[in-house]
Computed example of a mutant assay.
Amino acid sequence: MSDPHAEVVLRRARPEDLPVAGEVTVAAYEQFTLGPTDPYVARLRDAAARDREAELWVAELDGAVVGTVTVALEGSPWREIGRPGEGEFRMLAVAPTVQRRGVGEALMQLVLGRFRDLGAHAVVLSSLAEMSAAHRVYERLGFRRLPERDWSPVPGVDLLAFRMEL
């Protein structure tokens, strides 16, 4: 059991982190998938592709990877709704065993800081309509709904867009 007062350490993923980062992502999104045979699970698990084609960051508690986020810079194939001058992130995930310990918010602050440093004027994201707990965190941090960019990658999957000015 990790120390409830341990500090979250944020860093770029290393090759040895990729399998764990993939499993953390699968576990965090499990309730939103159709189960192990859902084709999206393989995409969630593929941290190596996210690291290669975007920036994969991890969060550690007590030396263990417990969270991850994909920072999709302009030109990354992981971008979905970002426009020029906007940052976009994907697949923010926190291990269910450490949720509500500040890991997700620490990852969000990292994303915002990263895009500020790059000179972005805003950050955007897409989120499943069912992810209401995440929506509350985004809104508390200053994100606002962007309904004109809501979209559906496949029938039955509705994604809500959010944006925050930097």
Rank of each mutant, 00 (worst) to 15 (best):
R116Q: 14
Q109S: 12
E74D: 15
A42P: 08
R116G: 07
V111Y: 06
R14N: 05
T25C: 15
T37D: 15
P147V: 03
V98Y: 01
M131I: 09
V69H: 09
F32H: 13
L112I: 11
G67S: 12
V103P: 02
L107W: 09
E80T: 07
F32C: 08
R14Y: 02
L73S: 13
H135N: 09
A13Y: 04
R12P: 12
G119F: 10
R43K: 13
A106G: 07
S132T: 15
P15W: 08
V154Q: 14
W78L: 15
F143H: 04
D117G: 13
E16L: 01
D38P: 10
V24F: 02
R144V: 15
G63R: 13
V9T: 15
A161Y: 05
T97P: 00
L110P: 00
D3Q: 05
E130R: 14
G22L: 06
F143Q: 02
A106M: 08
T68R: 08
V103M: 03
Q99V: 06
P4H: 04
L34E: 15
R50L: 01
Q31S: 14
W57Q: 00
T37S: 14
A42L: 09
A47S: 02
L141G: 00
Y138T: 00
V9G: 04
L112A: 06
A54E: 11
L56W: 02
F143M: 05
R11Q: 05
R145H: 07
V26L: 10
E60Y: 02
A48V: 00
T97N: 09
R140L: 01
